[in-house]
Amino acid sequence: MNCAPFDVFAIRYARHAGRIAADNYLGKVDFHDAESDLDYYVWVLRRGDEIYLVDTGFGEEAARQRGRELFMRPSAGLALLGIDAAQVQNVILTHLHYDHAGTLADFPAATFHVQDAEPTYVTGRCMCHAPLRHPYDVEDIVQYVRKLYAGRVTFHNGTAQVAPGLTLHLVGGHTRGLQIVRVWTQRGWVVLASDASHLYGNIGNSAPFPVVYNVGDMLEGYRIVRELAESEDHIVPGHDPQVMLRYPAPEPALQGKIVRLDVAPTTGGGALG
């Protein structure tokens, strides 16, 4: 790849503990670690002065309403990396669920990158069905529409290059317009799978996550993720606590809060399941 690599960070900002296997996998499962907690992340891509934020997480009110443990607002996590949320110019929204597209107001200077299919889905007839609209927060969607009317949204339709070494790919499945992020790093192509695979065990065992719009597209998404990543070690799921254990912190003070994904995993390498 003829461009400089990105540094890539995962910021852990919240947790949902006490989950059972049925919360994480469709159907009967008998593999290890099926009863995994979920961690919540946003991701930072940095190359010199060039910064892209992937997703904006949720804040205090959503944590209270949904029974999640909030460690910090995502914008506070950016500050730990010396990044001022108010100055961020580009935010990639993998989809518009409450835990990926909340706190939009914390990023007043940003342009938000979405797939055409996602807002069409979120404001269409599928939202008449409570199970499909439950993962969305209506106030987040209203805030998104305000960003749209302010000229702060860029739409993509399928695969798109946002910058050299940074591409977006529509996979759907979890939502109609879910996109994943492929980023060039010092160790090759890393894929931020977001909710194309919540846990290593979803893609590793071809076991879909229960919150799903189209199961067939979710399963096909596992193939797409694998094709785009340099290897299984280059796939980063969206909510797995193992991410914080497999990758190193940028510095000791950030242990348990932020890890680097542009370097090779230090433990658990090669095992998706």
Rank of each mutant, 00 (worst) to 15 (best):
H198C: 04
A117K: 04
N24P: 13
G177Q: 00
D140C: 15
D99I: 07
D137Q: 13
E220P: 00
G269E: 05
Q242L: 15
I83S: 03
A271P: 04
Q255F: 01
A79I: 02
S197L: 06
V225F: 07
D33V: 09
G48N: 08
V145M: 14
D116Y: 13
A163S: 12
I11F: 12
R73V: 02
V29H: 04
Y222M: 09
P135W: 05
D7F: 01
R187Q: 10
A21N: 12
T185K: 03
I258V: 14
L81F: 04
L245N: 09
T267I: 11
V162N: 00
I92Q: 02
Y52M: 09
H97S: 13
D116N: 14
T175V: 03
G59F: 04
A79G: 11
L70G: 05
L219W: 09
R15P: 01
P265A: 06
L104K: 03
C3L: 13
F6L: 08
A207K: 07
G151Y: 06
E69P: 01
E118C: 03
I83Y: 06
Y52W: 15
I51W: 00
I224L: 13
A253P: 02
R246F: 06
A110S: 12
P119H: 06
G59R: 02
V142Q: 13
D55Q: 12
V88Y: 04
P252H: 08
G82L: 05
S231H: 13
N157M: 07
E118P: 01
I258E: 00
Y98Q: 06
I92G: 03
A79W: 06
A117Y: 01
A229S: 10
P208C: 11
P248S: 07
E118Y: 00
E232C: 08
